[in-house]
Design a protein around this nucleic acid. Sequence first.
DNA 1: CTTGAAGACTTCAGACCTAAACTTCGAAGC
DNA 2: GCTTCGAAGTTTAGGTCTGAAGTCTTCAAG
Lengths: 190, 190
Amino acid sequence: MVSVILPLMADTPGPAEPSLEEQIAAYQREFQGLDPQVERVVSALSRLNRRMNVAYGRQTAELGISNAEWEVLKALVLAGEPYHLGPGDLAKRLGLTPAAMTHRIDRMVAEGLVTRERDETNRVRVIVGITEEGRAKWLEGLRMATVFEGDLLQDLSTAERALLGELLTRLLRRVEDAQPDAGGRLSDLD
Amino acid sequence: MVSVILPLMADTPGPAEPSLEEQIAAYQREFQGLDPQVERVVSALSRLNRRMNVAYGRQTAELGISNAEWEVLKALVLAGEPYHLGPGDLAKRLGLTPAAMTHRIDRMVAEGLVTRERDETNRVRVIVGITEEGRAKWLEGLRMATVFEGDLLQDLSTAERALLGELLTRLLRRVEDAQPDAGGRLSDLD
DNA sequence: CTTGAAGACTTCAGACCTAAACTTCGAAGC
DNA sequence: GCTTCGAAGTTTAGGTCTGAAGTCTTCAAG
């Protein structure tokens, strides 16, 4: 079976980077009292994500868009009918500031990926919609990502995939549930 | 037991963001032929990483440095005696361009976190070293991260942590082994 | 000894982000 | 109806990254 990962990953973060094992050993050397088990999970998570983002970037580049732009298209599609969102919503979903969203929408409108119009019922609001071309690029990007992701998980059995998904979901819940009514104990940090 | 995650995560990417379950359902709605099992793993990975980076950012901010700067300190410490690396090496390890590394080192030298000197045996090379203060900030950041990470994995048993680490390592291997002698089939993408 | 080529780092221009100030519209109080 | 406040977007200033061009050093060949 041919791998799609191989060409995508060629010469990625480059050599000279220590392997995960080397890094864990170095941590033990420099700081006793670190749980290698925890360290392995956290480091692997971080590395995996970096590699995956590089791969996604190469794929979206083939479509002539950036990873960031694909994320906007994705948010619009996942919003469902009528595939409309305001700049503020988009900013929250993508985790960036409203100012950044304004600029990004500017570019994407110029490229014909999305539309921007005023909401006539409430003229403070702006409505961003997806164009035919934007939808097509989203779909093509998703197809490529699907192949890559299937390849990535190739070595895992169905049971292992389910287990991995469940464990990750539990971690995520641990982190996402910790979102009280905003301003909870955040002040502790100020 | 008191959670350190709670205050760190308060009001993180904000509301209005769909939950993981909602997102997976939306994917099924908009694109048949997507494996929900794969989608769950990939989406959870991506979300977890985003949340964790936000948390790390808040912690390093307490030290008066950025996440990016902490990564440089980490690379220097993990390099081992004599805690020296060139800008090029650092750039490769952190996955950014040499140009960015130059600027980042500029700032960190100005802040007293690292030193920069010419290698007298080969005057093309530059040697970046860590200062006392840099090392102290690295250590303090690591301590905070350790608490956070232990808290994150709190709900997992020892066996589950080991299993999760093993599964992630296998995914990582699948991606990192795909680094042939540079230039392999990368040309396919040009 | 000089010359050419390759390597390591820096400089420069452009892209994209954040934080903060500003603009505009809508809703509540008097 | 006028005023004030808050919400939603945009504008502006400043910071960090990328990609390309430039500088300096070393090494090997003539």
